[in-house]
Design a protein around this nucleic acid. Sequence first.
DNA 1: CTGTTAGCGCATTCAG
DNA 2: CTGAATGCGCTAACAG
Lengths: 355, 355
Amino acid sequence: MDRKAPNDTAATPAKKITMKHIAEYLNIDRTTVSKAMASTPGVSDKTVRMVRQAAEELGYRKDIIASSLMTGKNALLGIVLADMWRGIYAPFVDSFQKSAYKNGYGVILQYVDKRTIGVRQAIEVLKQQRISGVTFISGATSEEDNPALIELAESGVAVNTTVRDLLHDRIDTIHFDNRNAGYEAAMHLIELGHRNIVFMGENRVNLTMSQRFQGYKQAVEENGLPSQLVETHENVWPKGMDVQTAYRLAKQLWTGQPKPDAIIGGNDNIALGVLFALKEEGVHVPQQVSLLGFDDLYAILAVPQLTSMRMPIMESGTTAVELLMERLNNPAKQAEAIKLAYEKIVRDSTAAAVK
Amino acid sequence: MDRKAPNDTAATPAKKITMKHIAEYLNIDRTTVSKAMASTPGVSDKTVRMVRQAAEELGYRKDIIASSLMTGKNALLGIVLADMWRGIYAPFVDSFQKSAYKNGYGVILQYVDKRTIGVRQAIEVLKQQRISGVTFISGATSEEDNPALIELAESGVAVNTTVRDLLHDRIDTIHFDNRNAGYEAAMHLIELGHRNIVFMGENRVNLTMSQRFQGYKQAVEENGLPSQLVETHENVWPKGMDVQTAYRLAKQLWTGQPKPDAIIGGNDNIALGVLFALKEEGVHVPQQVSLLGFDDLYAILAVPQLTSMRMPIMESGTTAVELLMERLNNPAKQAEAIKLAYEKIVRDSTAAAVK
DNA sequence: CTGTTAGCGCATTCAG
DNA sequence: CTGAATGCGCTAACAG
């Protein structure tokens, strides 16, 4: 019962094939097998071929755990995040996972939360699995966690962050080019002939949005146009709050004079709120007013679908993996701060201004 | 340099503390330490206390990898999913991860995709990490993967699925009670005095939605009211498509007679599309028409915010972990099919019918 | 280029 | 109740 006939073709490979088995099978040493499988220099091509083929035949799969015990590394990348509710993390995780897989790595998720699990504990958990690299998503860490990140990086684990300043010469970071996105958004409307463009958003607490506003401001001023900021005066979390606020402010805006011929919502939520207000006022989008959002998270949920500056979240997941791979290959390389560009997605909410 | 003073308070614990160290520290055997830490019966309470305390003092952390090599198990749970883009997976993953952490388990993510990585490969990857349990999200697997799942379950890994039929007496499964949700949604409107309630959704391809419709149908019929289905006639993917379609159909609906006094959108997207149409028609929600959606994914992005039947996704992640834990404790237990209830979230889009 | 020896850190026999 | 021996499967030094 513990001996299976070799020609047992039942769907039960059950018995685990180890290097030992393939060594015995070929009458060579198990360490030679190890070297052959690992492409260690100093093994004849012939042996390598023999071993590889035997491995194939016997259905050998390397035991990652045992390997990991020796090498101290595991082909696993970690993602540390605070919350997946905000929506924008899902595509990040998705693309990160896909890229990692292509590179032969698995992905392990670790959530942090002020009340229950701190960054240090999260790192502890990941280190126990011998992860090779970790990415810390914006919001998961704050200034006070810097020492922990640095310590981790210096212990030989590849590390990067998103939307944080560079904090160490071995920790790469990824940014989103919000300022330029704001600039391009405004230029799009200006080129369509709009002269009176309003930016609506929260400009004090939210750095992302204030950068978008700065870009907008530069564009209109360069073109001799007035800049107007309508502040939502609220923290944008929880999501949805800003829809209602934007709605209220847009209604209000329509009681005054002059009325804008184009509106930029600092994110899609805000644009959505404005859209509802305009519908109620009987204002047609884009015939009378052009409307534009940011992030492209909810843009296609609108009627008409919104022109939006798409946040390169998918790209950021891929980039995060690439940075980790580069650093694993060259641990001493100088830290990079990569700035990802937004993509302008033109849909039906923006059109040429009427004369 | 390899001997640190015990009162070394520098932030570098660096040197790894193993059971060997704590054994030497206490002048006992390493295997005794092992037993003490594992609460194996047959060790004196005194020794256990001694060991535990020494472990604490020295900052000992058990090496999961080494442990795993011996036991064949790792405190890791896997999630197999097809895509995170649809939005509904994010809260699942989020709550799954949190629950897993509370139970002392980590989470490893594994994506599958027809073109690049099949279910069998995904399972292979996870088994290599010696995961203790796996959950397969709806959409990640199909009938043809059943043998692989069964094999996995029989190999001693805890397994469950979501929105799939029971396929083995050791594989639990989680469902959403769509039919009852449809029933309650309709009852909510009926109790508000609405008599002419339309259900809008895709009823052929999408099983989820047709179950919701069935529930709605039962409720109106029980109350002697007419049931009316407006079919979107389209596959609901890609998301957003249904918003536009629903918008078109609602506009159309408003050209005919009689006009409904309440509309149920088979999901929030559809309700959103209807809302845009009603705004354009100058119809006030909820004063003239009550509107209700499903899923509660985008309900708060509307003005007014939508009453919606919230899909218990967060609960499903937690439930998935609980099922895995139960099965790990009792591998032979009969498979369960759990049906999770929706929660009715009443907001501003539904109100009493005008007489 | 191959085989020998040794050990990663832990857990599970079995004697004492 | 404790200690001594043994091995999980692999890799890394060295010697042959």
